[in-house]
Design a protein around this nucleic acid. Structure first.
Length: 427
RNA sequence: GGGCCAGUAGCUCAGUCGGUUAGAGCAGGGCACUCAUAAUGCCUUUGUCGCGGGUUCAAGUCCUGCCUGGCCUACCA
């Protein structure tokens, strides 16, 4: 039976260029999609740029242009890079679209109607110069526990964790100004009310790798703990969508980002005369998300909670991969191992990297190591030595001897290809 | 601290419900070949399956303790 499959990769954030670490995911997904099509399944690959949030707002301001200009520019760059690596999306949208705003409204309404939204007064550091509230990572200061200087806003090298409001001598990394404490109303989604549903989905479903289900069960869904309320609003100024029934508050970027999967599909449907409900409200359509391990809980707690509440189809599978290391170490700018897609393409063929990743990917949530020497060896021996050389031989040979008008019926080729299709595993 | 995952040939990794002499690719060694791109084909060496116990007729595979490494621990895109 032909399967109908909707596939997504995580939406790249519009604040930075695509690098070889991101490409692990897009290449993995693209290969998976191509495989499904070869196996005869209907498969649509959707992605989009993730465009909202403080980081975008700050950067646009710094560069003296509008957020819209910035994200249009970045979206163009991202798509150029993906194209350069032969990653073929059926549609590439943006979270800054009217479709996405509409979907956010729709899902929000469902959350409200189900009594899952609550309000709390939050004390947060505010940068009076940049005129914005500061996320934890935009603050540094002296650790209140050990006294270490210049520590991040939420934890210290000494192992202590704290709130940025507890930091001694806090400094805003945006402006260098001393932040002040201000309070503002935030809106929260009460995840605890979805515990029963989430536990069931995580434990009894087939959507997660075993290690991921264990991780969620052991940490978030532990019996002695409550699921914390999820803070999904940010007060103005914020680049994003204003919450319709809470003027002056905007949806936190992680609220509208995954909704981009839905809205981008909606755009694709409009462009191709497809029925939207066939893709997001149909039990016979499979939904597969490919993401990195860093955003696991967004996709395995918040996201299914939102979909469930709004009556959308839940993910069939969330495929989670690890990070990319280079020669056994984290990618680093100073060591020159943080290679952007653009830089790579100036020096090497995209298929070299595609092939290399294909040979090293596993179904586990584990980091993948790009060994430079191994990369060179694999390309030389496997691709040049075997594949290209074979083509070259055949070309020369055929040129000398000529080709038959028709492919001879040796029985083996077609039989073999059909066998391969039958033999596919339950991927 | 707690939790999860991993540890198999020089390197990167497969090993399904426990079942014969533990596999592949690369690297190394030997021979051959020319249709072929500093190629290719064939043959070939290498393992205390992290360590110690246990269960079993049988353990790389299951249980347990330990060692080592990695990751996670909610406001991170």
């Amino acid at each position: 039976m032909t399967r109908q499959i909707l596939v997504t990769s995580a939406l790249p954030y519009a604040n930075g260029p695509i690098h070889i670490g991101h490409l692990v995911e897009y290449i993995q997904t693209d290969i998976w999609v191509r495989y499904q099509r070869l196996a005869g399944n209907r498969c649509v690959y959707i992605c989009a740029d993730d465009t909202h949030g403080t980081a975008i707002m700050i950067r646009a301001k710094k560069e003296g242009r509008s957020e819209e200009e910035l994200i249009a520019d970045m979206s163009g760059q991202h798509q150029r890079d993906f194209d350069g690596f032969h990653v073929e999306f059926d549609h590439y949208g943006s979270t800054h679209s009217e479709e996405n705003r509409g979907q956010c409204h729709f899902i929000w309404k469902a959350l409200r109607e189900n009594g899952l939204v609550t309000e709390k007064l939050i004390e947060q550091l505010y940068d009076p110069e940049a005129e914005t509230f500061l996320a934890d990572r935009f603050v540094r200061g002296t650790c209140p526990v050990s006294g270490h200087k210049d520590q991040p806003g939420d934890n210290c090298v000494c192992g202590a964790t704290y709130s940025p409001t507890e930091l001694i001598d806090p400094v805003s990394t945006l402006s260098g100004a001393t932040p002040e404490i201000r309070s503002a109303v935030h809106l929260f989604v009460q995840l605890e009310k979805l515990r029963e549903f989430l536990s069931d989905w995580i434990e009894n479903g087939d959507a997660l790798q075993k290690e991921t289900a264990n991780y969620l069960k052991g940490y978030f869904l532990a019996e002695d703990k409550e699921l914390r309320d999820w803070d999904i609003s940010r007060p103005a100024p914020y680049f994003g969508f204003e919450i319709p029934d809470s003027p002056g508050n905007y949806w936190y970027v992680w609220f509208d980002a995954p909704i981009g999967y839905i809205s981008s599909t909606e755009q694709w449907c409009k462009l191709n005369g497809e029925s939207f409900d066939d893709w997001w409200r149909s039990e016979s359509t499979e939904i597969h998300h490919f993401i990195g391990k860093d955003i696991t809980y967004f996709h395995t707690l918040f996201w299914p909670g939102m979909l469930h509440t709004a009556g959308y189809q839940l993910p069939t599978k969330v495929h989670i991969h690890g990070f990319l290391n280079v020669d056994g170490e984290k990618m680093s700018k100073s060591k020159g191992t943080l290679i952007t897609a653009e830089t790579y393409l100036k020096h090497a063929e995209p298929d070299f990297l595609r092939y290399y990743y294909a040979t090293k990917l596993t179904p586990r949530v584990e980091d993948l190591d790009l060994g430079i020497q191994e990369f060179v060896d694999k390309v030389n021996s496997d691709l040049v030595g075997k594949v290209v050389n074979l083509a070259s031989r055949v070309g020369k040979f055929a040129g000398l001897t000529g080709l038959s008008e028709t492919y001879p019926d040796d029985g083996a080729f077609r039989k073999g290809s059909r066998g391969g299709q039958r033999d596919r595993t339950g991927l």
